[in-house]
């Protein structure tokens, strides 16, 4: 589908959507948001790109194979879980660098954020794999 309006708009909309997805990811610890939603928003922005141009172009612009992203995302999730084991606590036990900020609404860095980042990457990977496969067939 060739549409001048969409072509032009995507240049502005896409960075906005990607920034918004990161915002959702970071604020998701104690408030609405989180890895899954953020991943969907990011994947949706790439889907929009694929609609504006076409799937091969989107794949090229994305540079890496989305399947690798699934692997990386799951690897990050694993890391966040193993961190608990390394500290001598059960698998996936939560640990934070600055838990005292939780109430004030600041970004709380800890294993849950790492976990969410992994979810984010994996969701982007899965959704894009599906979209690219479906679009190209």
């Amino acid at each position: 589908m060739k549409s001048l309006i969409l072509h032009t708009a995507i240049r502005i909309v896409m960075p906005l959507l990607l920034f918004f997805s990161v915002f959702l990811l970071v604020r998701g610890h104690n408030r609405p948001g989180g890895g899954f939603v953020a991943g969907l928003v990011a994947a949706a922005s790439w889907a929009l790109y694929a609609v504006a141009h076409d799937a091969p172009a989107a794949r090229q612009a994305f540079r890496i194979d989305p399947r690798v992203l699934i692997g990386v995302g799951l690897g990050v999730i694993l890391l966040s879980g193993v961190a608990g084991l390394l500290a001598g606590r059960p698998f996936l036990a939560g640990m934070w660098l600055n838990p005292e900020f939780a109430a004030s609404g600041e970004v709380v860095v800890g294993t849950p954020l790492i976990f969410d980042t992994g979810v984010y990457l994996a969701v982007v990977g899965v959704v894009l794999t599906i979209i690219f496969v479906l679009e190209e067939e």
Binding site: D65, R67, V68, I70, G71, V72, L74, G75, L78, G81, V82, F91
Partner: peptide, 14 residues
């Protein structure tokens, strides 16, 4: 954990 790690590594070595 081990199958998950294996799957991740296998994905990365695709």
């Amino acid at each position: 954990l081990v199958p998950m790690l294996t799957a991740v590594l296998a994905l990365l070595a695709y």
